[in-house]
Amino acid sequence: MATVLLHIRESIQTTLLVFTTHLWRMVRTRRTLVMLMAAAVPSLPILATAGRSVPLHAPVMNVTWFLAMQVMLPLIALIGGAAVIAEEIMDRTITWVFVRPVSRIAFFTGRLLAAQVQVAAVVTAMVGGLFVSAEMTTGKVADGPTTYEVIAPVLPISVLGGLAYVTIFAAIGAWVKRPLAVGVGYAFTMEALLANLPGTTAELSVLHHLRSLLIAEPTGDLWEKLEVAAGTLWIPYGEAVSSLLWTCGIAFVLGCWIVRRKQYGLSV
């Protein structure tokens, strides 16, 4: 029992050490800059509509639905998530960790947590940018929801989606040689295909869960008007959240299993 507790304590210490060391490193990389630039993109079309005669909240809702959720969120998560193990493999620095007496799972967990914090921060900045740009262009009206009421639910949903995507991409990164390439294929081909299929097949995609969460919000009827596809079956809020958390958990366990077993020094 004492050995098990000691083992757990060591693993937690390693996780925290890896987390703190790599979070600080990740913040200062060019990757973070690219992620921030990607996060700024959705704000640009909203700002571009300033002074034009457009329906209330239409810019921010269209941009959130079509650009932020479907393109930028997976992209930001991909850039952050694929780097978890793949960056160490590509830079060949993984050797420094795996020849040390550390738990591989603790290392993976530490790096994944760092990537999740990084992505959550960038996604928050993206949603914050949406809010600020919408406030600058739309202003307040007497009736109908305020910009805050429209945007506020987007933040937790985006962060949750970001965490799910990061965990999936981290597991992919632990498994394949080119996680960015495979991740691009997954995020923009498989997800796009599955999310737009009629019936319950769409439930296989993260994107459909995120859309369902938005639809389940008090402002859901406004969001629903954006989705023109007939026969879409939305998932209830609680079920969507638990599905996304399960996705995170399964991807994490899968990633741990791969990292624990895989041989990373495979060049002759």
């Binding site: 034009r52 810019p59 941009v63 079509f66 393109v71 850039i79 080119r178 996680p179 960015l180 691009v184």
Partner: peptide
Amino acid sequence: KSFAMMAMFALVLLPHALSRILARLL
């Protein structure tokens, strides 16, 4: 290659999403 793939998807999907938004808004 990975960066090139990301760039290619960005060049295809970003204009697609933006044009869709512009078409709706305007």
